[in-house]
Nucleic acid binder design. Structure first.
Lengths: 362, 362
DNA sequence: TTGTACGCGTTATCAG
DNA sequence: CTGATAACGCGTACAA
């Protein structure tokens, strides 16, 4: 097996030995070129549309591609300057919330039409994890980033409290879109739900029905949307000359279990509320569960919930919802990325879009 | 501004001119090296743990990294042989189905713990789109692929009907995991729900309750799981000495709208069923809606549905569900990828895991 | 302990 | 119309 002393043969053996054992069998453009009997450059041209290549060579190449099962290495391609990766990083807090699943669907719908793909990460509403994901995605040379910002960072009220990683993204001139939530100090394309108006109209409706003691369940401390919704809730009260009873405001919950606890607590008050405003779909689920668990007649209390809840219209509760189009929110975010990465210059001012809500009374 | 004739200065100017205009400002390892006054190699070493580098140089480098905001280019890194990308392609039919959203969540949970990221695409149950996604993901050098196979390809009953793209994945020695559905002719790690047993127990329960005319709603033509569920459904009938009335089997629907139509149709029969078995959560939603739309008393008909439906236990229907852990299915798929890409050899026989179901009677 | 040389797969540039 | 060359950012092998 050792190379004989014949120069030519030795050279060949060396080439074979050099045929790297690590070459995992995945064919490269060079393999295609060799099989087709052309240069790699010609193969590249054919792959890019075959402009300015003789038809017979085109056929040679396409055949070689087919027999070898060749696929372009997108990563190698993208290290060259000026080449896009076609990758967009998507960071959401939690896909198992149907709302965010719907947002992701909308994003994917728009981007896949542009042959772009999404890298998805769940932050779990944890700023540290969000930061790690951003770093990773940037390292993978994404063409854009869509983020539902984690709420944790807002706690300290500082400028862009804990959002330096997103500032860095902008410094690197990577298009950034904030979805569903704004972030103080970060000036980026943003798509929101019109939380204030939606909540205002929901609360107004309850007040019109005669309710004066309306509870509010939603995390006002750290969740941007919940604070906005509370603003609308409060405004409706003010307009009607009512005041919001602080005892009826449960500012903690942001998941169904916590909301259930808060609701059970409210039901145990000396003077319980006659209606409840729930700040999001997870909380609404918790509220409903509390009512059932407390053994109450499901219609004993009026409920209005932000976001939709599947089958809310057939449930035995006195439940209305403030609905909106989560998928359209995702689509809008996707379009913003597409616009920025072609078309609209990076330096154009940030756009802020607010999507409407629709009150569905049951 | 033109370079003077002083050799040294000219050289410098040349370097500056050479500083490519396309260099989009993103710092590279070379920039870090220059700022730190070391070679790129030393920077690389520091980034990989700083073993065998003098502490002062380590500091120099880490400082330079910090001031420049340097991040390693993962794509450039991955083109070298033997380097993993840490990317896993995930192809699901539709994330807006809460079941698949949950699966994705499970996958992400396991993989992100290994510092791996997911590329997600929706196939919309379209084999052509699935194929395109597979091609794209393979081109991006994913370390593995998790696929909920589209059903379209099974129509022609041929060997691996329309699944050649998945065979190709295996030929390229990329770990492949099938989730939720099997594919004839494809021999890969697979994680399924124990559909047969789950459906069997559900149907058995209805029969034990005295029902003999039980309708079945689910797409038997193209959906693997639905066929398996029908098997269990049938077996329970046989065991009880009953036969399934073909008139009560609606083999078409695979979404809530179609299921609603089928259910309305069933309700209009001369001899309507006294119970319904719905093959998945989308269908269950349609069934419930049909009952409400038909103006029936929600409790007029017994329903059992595969998959869970949120708040099924508090709804005013006579609804039981055959529940299972979708997130665990996702986790299992993720673990299979991790195992194959390290640990377990690629050549080890395919593993098939069936996760249990749980009948929740309401 | 540190640096040099080279190659990974691809494509822009330029020469033929 | 075609091909040789160089370069993208990084890491391995080897040399100093």
């Amino acid at each position: 097996m050792s190379a004989p002393d014949v120069p030519g043969a030795a050279h060949l053996a060396a080439r074979i030995d050099a045929a790297p054992p690590y070459r995992s069998g995945v064919p490269t453009i060079t393999d295609v070129a060799a099989l087709a009997g052309v240069s790699p450059m010609t193969v590249s041209r054919v792959l890019h549309g075959g402009k300015n290549v003789r038809p017979d060579k085109v056929k040679l190449v396409t055949d070689a591609v087919a027999t070898l099962g060749y696929r372009r290495n997108e990563n190698a391609r993208s290290i060259r300057p000026g080449q896009r990766t076609g990758l967009v990083g998507v960071i959401i807090t939690n896909v198992s919330n149907p709302y965010y699943a719907e947002v992701q669907q909308g994003i994917e719908e728009v981007l896949s039409a542009e042959e772009m793909r999404i890298l998805v990460g769940n932050s779990g509403d944890d700023v540290a994890k969000e930061r790690a994901l951003v770093d990773d995605f940037v390292g993978r040379q994404v063409d854009g980033l869509i983020v539902v910002p984690s709420s944790g960072g807002e706690l300290d009220g500082a400028g862009a409290g804990g959002a330096e990683h997103l500032e860095a993204v902008q410094l690197a001139r990577i298009p950034l879109v904030l979805a569903s939530r704004e972030l103080p100090g970060i000036h980026a394309d943003t798509v929101l739900i019109d939380d204030v108006t939606g909540a205002y109209e929901g609360a107004k409706r309850l007040i019109a029905e005669g309710h004066t003691r309306i509870a509010y369940i939603g995390n006002l401390v750290s969740v941007f949307t919940s604070r906005r919704r509370f603003d609308g809730f409060t405004r409706a009260h003010e307009e009607a000359g009512l005041t919001v009873d602080p005892l009826l405001v449960r500012a903690g919950p942001n998941d169904s279990a916590a909301a259930r606890g808060a609701m059970l607590d409210l039901l145990g008050l000396e003077q319980p509320p006659t209606a409840v405003f729930s700040a999001n779909n997870r909380n609404t689920v918790g509220v409903l569960r509390a009512i059932v668990d407390a053994g109450l007649d499901p219609r004993a209390i009026r409920i209005i919930g932000f976001d939709s809840v599947e089958l809310s219209d057939v449930m035995p509760f006195d439940l209305s919802v403030i609905d909106h189009d989560a998928r359209e929110l995702g689509r809008t975010a996707g379009r913003m990325i597409v616009d920025r990465s072609s078309g609209i210059p990076r330096s154009a001012p940030a756009r802020i879009v607010e999507l409407p809500t629709r009150l569905i009374v049951n």
